[in-house]
Amino acid sequence: MSINWSKLTGRITGWVLPIFLMMIWEIASENGWLFSKILPSPREIVQAAIDLSISGELAKNIVASSERAGWGLLIGGSIGFFLGLVNGLSRTADRFLDTTVQMIRNVPHLALIPLVIIWFGIGEEGKVFLVTLGVFFPIYANTYHGIKTADPQLLEMGRVYGLNHWQLFSQIIFPGALPSILVGLRYSLGLMWLTLIVAETIATTSGIGQMAMNAREFMQTDVVVLAILIYALLGKLADMGVHFLEVRLLQWHSGFRQ
């Protein structure tokens, strides 16, 4: 028998508590201890998921939300990454731009919602804009930090070994900054969903947040809870994506080696 019991139990352990809580929840709902308009039973939520899947509404809303999240991350992440690089590498750019970046960062981006609605209406652009603002800073700050903390000893070695500017960047500065950049990405993903949840509950015609707001109007708590669970699931998926990147890109780092 070559079953690795310790590994197996290690994997299962994390799920014991959630499943136990779900069972209590289900039992409480079945016996009427929980009023289903306050908190629906797990069975009802699964039923809601099945109904919405069949009607195609669930898929449509998930796609709409993911698209906004994806565009926002792409645009905000690129700007943050690029500015982080430029300011990290060039002192002049840093002096010129950093004050502006810090001022923008200190405005809570969700406070811009009224203005965003005036500017963009309730279309896609406003939400993408908010997500862009939300994800921008963590990626900027961590890219900047990663570049700034490049090991001077390694840089000196690179110069002695005849590396040109591009090689110094691609072989020494960037790989050294990568762990930090991925931390920034992780933070950004958290802010990405947070921003989207708020943006979609305020003004929109599709998306998970809109689905939840609609459901609230009709007291469909099962759909509301379903929407929350989907956010949790999408957040977990995004985090797994970064973890996958870390394991692939940071194999050299003893902290990430499998």
Binding site: Q153, L154, E156, M157, G158, V160, Y161, G162, L163, Q167, Q171, I172, P175, G176, L178, L250, W252, H253
Partner: peptide, 21 residues
């Protein structure tokens, strides 16, 4: 130059470090 510390790039394997440049 050989320094007091080896100054190998941790993200490159041994042969790629030697191949640097």
């Amino acid at each position: 130059v050989m320094f007091q510390e080896a100054r190998l790039l941790p993200w490159l394997n041994v042969v790629d470090n030697v191949q640097l440049g």
